[in-house]
Simulated scan of single mutants.
Amino acid sequence: MLERGDEGAEVLAVQERLIELGYFLRRADGDFGPATQQAVWALQKAAGLARDGLVGPATRAALDAGTRPSARTTSGRAIEIDLDRQLVLAVDDGVVTRVVNASSGNGERYVALGRPQRAYTPTGDYTVVRQINGMHESTLELGSMYRPKYFRGGWAVHGSTSIPPWPASHGCVRVSNAAMDWIWDTWGAPLGTPVVVY
């Protein structure tokens, strides 16, 4: 069993396999830190396993089997958001390039600017319609969003320091700040990039 805080060759091997399968992890360094935990959660979600962040027998079996989600889009570059599995997929011509742990709307009621709201993430076919290359404060006073890419009104995919393996947001789709940097700086998802939420 491997868990957060572990170090060494076994952790390195797991990290290398996660990267090989397309799970977002910047580098394999043999240190089971928060970034590795995010990648393990993503694998567990894709495999339909308990989201405990531990690399035990079932998670190792998923790694060995090469478990990775399939894309729904078939052409061009697209961001796919799988709400059931709480994953963001970076897709190129029908091939999943990266699998990212995500956290979307939790369905709870809340009040913003004196008005009752429900924390949900809308499904449907959208595009990136607005983006802010930096930290942005929610106009509804719901907190900070790192490098948001908006796809419908106030809904965006954005970086955060809190991405648990379950729905926890007011409706936006949270990914790690490192994953958001990768989307902006390496992969690229300019205005007009399709965003498919299901």
Rank of each mutant, 00 (worst) to 15 (best):
T127S: 11
G53K: 07
Q86Y: 13
I81W: 10
A47D: 10
A35F: 02
T67D: 01
Q117W: 09
T74M: 00
D52P: 06
A28Q: 04
A47M: 04
R130L: 09
Q38T: 06
L89M: 13
R60W: 12
V91N: 10
A61E: 15
A102P: 12
A61Y: 10
R118I: 15
T123E: 11
A62K: 04
L113Q: 14
I81Y: 07
L43E: 11
V95Y: 01
V88D: 02
T59P: 11
F32K: 03
L43C: 13
L83N: 07
A71C: 04
R98W: 02
A28W: 08
G107V: 02
T121I: 04
T59S: 14
L54N: 12
G76Y: 08
R77D: 02
G30Y: 11
N101D: 09
W41G: 05
L25K: 08
L25D: 05
L89R: 11
S70G: 14
G94C: 07
D52E: 08
A71K: 11
A42C: 07
P122E: 01
S103A: 13
R77P: 04
T74F: 00
T73K: 12
S70T: 10
A71F: 08
D92I: 10
L113A: 14
Q38A: 15
P122T: 02
R85Q: 06
A65K: 05
D64Q: 14
R72A: 10
A78L: 02
P122H: 02
A90C: 07
L87D: 05
A28R: 00
D93R: 08
G33R: 05
D93L: 12
L54P: 06
P116N: 06
L83W: 06
A90S: 06
R118S: 08
S103F: 00
V88G: 02
A58H: 12
E108R: 15
P116Y: 00
A119L: 01
D93C: 07
A28N: 06
T97E: 15
R115L: 08
R72N: 10
A50C: 08
E108D: 14
P34C: 00
I79E: 01
D125F: 03
Q44D: 11
R51G: 13
S103L: 03
I132S: 03
Q131K: 12
T74W: 10
A42T: 11
I81R: 02
P122R: 01
R98Y: 10
S104Y: 10
F32S: 01
R68N: 09
P69F: 12
P122W: 01
A61C: 13
L63T: 04
G30V: 08
A47I: 00
G114M: 14
T123K: 09
R60K: 14
D52F: 03
N133Q: 12
T59F: 04
G56D: 11
D125C: 09
D31P: 00
A90H: 00
S103T: 01
P116G: 04
A39P: 08
Q131M: 11
R115A: 06
D29A: 07
G76T: 06
T36E: 00
D82W: 15
Q86P: 13
I81N: 03
A112K: 03
G30P: 11
